[in-house]
Design a protein around this nucleic acid. Structure first.
Length: 501
RNA sequence: GGGUCGUUAACUCAGCCGGUAGAGUAUCUGACUUUUAAUCAGAGAGUCGCGCGUUCGAAUCGCGCACGACCCA
């Protein structure tokens, strides 16, 4: 690779000259005994210019984030995973020879330092270097220490650089990890067991979405990356695992946006002998408690909008939401002709076979969704748009289903499960018969799933929660790409050119 | 897929009505043994995203393309 760049050439030369001095640029033996996080509190009891009594030796390793060099001494800011500590390097302590090698250190290098603690004149705890070790010589300059990295494209493509220089990015992904761990702990605490079901499926089911297709050579068959784990998790209910959950990736071959990444992380959980109301209670408790743990409060701000996650949350049926929030006359909702006329008046295009349930759902999406800022459960979804949910015992035109909306966005979807194999088969067949014009969405009959139901699935309720969207909410992230370490982007033209050369 | 905006040094950004590219950080050289956006003096660094066109002359104007951001479908 021919890099014409001057800065890079200089760094390479510097690295070469360090190697000539006998320094191993990529040494492998240094094991820090301490961390910055653990050393920092030791400064609390020291006065400026005071050394730690006893002069104990410590060692830390990390990346040099800043350097202030004087002729025969220097201060370096060294960052490790938990924080930063200042290093003070003095020629008369290291000796002439070692100090010569120190002079060739750069911002970005990863080094190990052994020494003693003291406080400087201005009161900053510092590690006085007695021995120094080069662990990894950096050949590329870090972004501007003051402005950091603001170009979003570079931040997404070179997340490693973003993580080095942007504390907020590190914070967001730490929180993401915490949130997922807390979800796990919460469900395990409720006797759920975590399972893994196929991501490569012969029939992509459990949702309506365009799948990715792939091919298995040895089996000579097409497979799909899953769009949802739902049908497999419910097979486990049949098998007698009464509480199961899975947190993992789903894949949907659709457009990208600030809310959609082709692969995204989904939590799905199923509980036997529970109803959708139990899921509502669980969701409310789980999300609010996780928010409190992660943010220290249940009152958060999302992109400038205040959101209160303190339970209890509001619950409305879809009809109630259409009346109370969209201001639609109750009479219209029970009169199919008037309903269809309203839909047309609102400019919504419905497919021919669409019935009143689909019409209401479209109206809801258009008129209600973005007004649901504080957490709101919408229940009584039309059966027409809920092929896997159990019909309501009193009104079979709706299902025992809910969706959760926060900041105008769908965050969760759950329902009492349909466990009648005959009803399920009929609904699958209807779904296939009424498939839309889109060739890429092709519902297929999952005969094995029906067979499983025929053995008997306990009554149950289940739910899916979009983990990326939950993390966005709890970290105040404007785009899903801000909560996915390596979001999907088109390849860089420049890099590809270089590869071809 | 459509619209708007963006792409200039490694990073952050200027660059007006077209006249041959500029700052800060970073880097290099020199001074400096308690600094913290260290300081002082000097220096180097650019296919101005890519291509075509208009023009005596294009970072600047026009068209196309690539990549990205946001909005819409």
């Amino acid at each position: 690779m021919s890099e014409e760049n001057q800065t890079l050439a200089q760094r390479r030369e510097k690295a070469a000259s360090l190697a000539e001095l006998g320094v191993n640029l990529y040494s492998n033996g240094f094991k820090p005994a301490n961390t910055t996080r653990e050393l920092l509190p030791k400064g609390d009891s020291l006065a400026p210019q005071e050394a730690e009594p006893g002069g104990a030796g410590y060692s830390i390793a990390g990346r040099i984030m800043a350097m202030r060099k004087f002729g025969k001494a220097a201060f370096c800011t060294l960052a490790d995973t938990g924080g930063q500590l200042q290093i003070y390097v003095k020629k008369d302590i290291l000796g002439d020879e070692v100090f010569e090698t120190f002079k060739k250190w750069d911002i970005g290098d990863i080094v190990g330092v052994e020494g003693t603690l003291f406080k400087t004149k201005v009161g900053e705890l510092s590690l006085q270097a007695h021995r120094i070790t080069m662990i990894s010589k950096s050949l590329r300059p870090l972004p501007d220490k003051w402005h950091g990295l603001t170009d979003v494209e570079t931040r997404y493509r070179q997340r490693y650089v973003d993580l080095i220089v942007t504390p907020e990015t590190r914070e967001t992904f730490r929180k993401r990890v915490d949130i997922i761990r807390l979800v796990r702990e919460y469900l395990i605490g409720k006797d759920f067991m975590e399972v893994e079901t196929p991501m490569m499926q012969p029939i992509p089911g459990g949702a309506t979405a365009k799948p990715f297709k792939t091919y298995h050579n040895a089996l000579d068959m097409e497979l799909y990356l899953r769009i949802a784990p739902e049908l497999y998790l419910k097979r486990l209910l049949v098998g007698g695992f009464e509480r199961v959950f899975e947190i993992n990736r789903n894949f949907r071959n659709e457009g990208l946006s600030t809310r959609h990444n082709p692969e995204f992380t989904m939590l799905e959980f199923y509980q036997a002998y529970a109803t959708y109301e139990d899921m509502i209670t669980l969701t409310e408790k789980m999300i609010s408690s996780i928010c409190h743990t992660v943010n220290g409060t249940m009152k958060i701000t999302y992109q400038g909008t205040e959101v209160d996650l303190t339970p209890p949350w509001t619950t409305l049926t879809m009809d109630e939401a259409l009346v109370e929030i969209a201001g639609i006359d109750r009479e219209i909702l029970v009169d199919d002709e008037k309903l269809m006329a309203l839909v047309k008046a609102k400019g919504i295009q419905l497919e021919e076979q669409a019935g009143p349930g689909k019409a209401k759902t479209e109206l809801f999406e258009l008129l209600v969704e973005d007004k649901l800022i504080n957490p709101t459960f919408i229940t009584s979804y039309p059966t027409e748009v809920s092929p896997l949910a159990r019909k309501n015992d009193l009104d079979p035109s709706v299902t025992d289903r809910f969706e959760l909306f926060i900041t105008g966005r769908e965050l969760a979807n759950g329902f009492s499960e349909l466990n009648d194999p005959i009803d399920q088969l009929a609904r699958f067949e209807k779904q296939i018969a009424e498939r839309g014009e889109d060739d890429e969405i092709h519902p297929e009959l999952d005969a094995d799933y029906i067979r499983a139901l025929e053995y008997g699935m306990p009554s149950a309720a289940g739910e899916g929660i979009g983990i990326d969207r939950l993390v966005m909410l709890l970290t105040d992230a404007p785009s899903i790409r801000d909560v996915i370490l390596f979001p999907h982007l088109k390849p860089e033209a420049k890099l590809q050119q270089e590869r071809e050369e």
